[in-house]
């Protein structure tokens, strides 16, 4: 199951990456699951996506909660709380 993952602002800078396509392992089916899965990469990933860090997530360009489901072809984005306006 392939999905697209995007990173913005301070998250993008910490990870040194703005977008990637990844193959989700079996058993990863939610935003929280994906976040844990990406943390396994260690280093900056473990730090930027740590549980204690306040992040927002979007699935297919709508704000999504940690329990939101992810399916093949989805676009999932991780970013800090927004500061526009």
């Amino acid at each position: 199951m392939k999905i697209k993952v995007l990173y913005f602002a301070s998250v993008r800078e910490k990870l040194g990456k703005d977008a990637e396509e990844i193959e989700l392992p079996a058993g990863v089916a939610t935003v929280a699951g994906l976040r844990s899965h990406l943390r396994l990469r260690g280093g900056a990933w473990a730090e930027a996506l740590a549980d204690g860090r306040l992040l927002r997530t979007a699935v297919n360009q709508d704000m999504a909660q940690a329990g939101a489901a992810i399916k093949a072809g989805d676009e999932v984005a991780f970013f800090p709380p927004v500061t526009g306006g």
Partner: peptide, 14 residues
Amino acid sequence: IMDYLKTQAPFWKK
């Protein structure tokens, strides 16, 4: 609209 834009629209200021 302004209040919601501040918390819901994905902008980040550096």
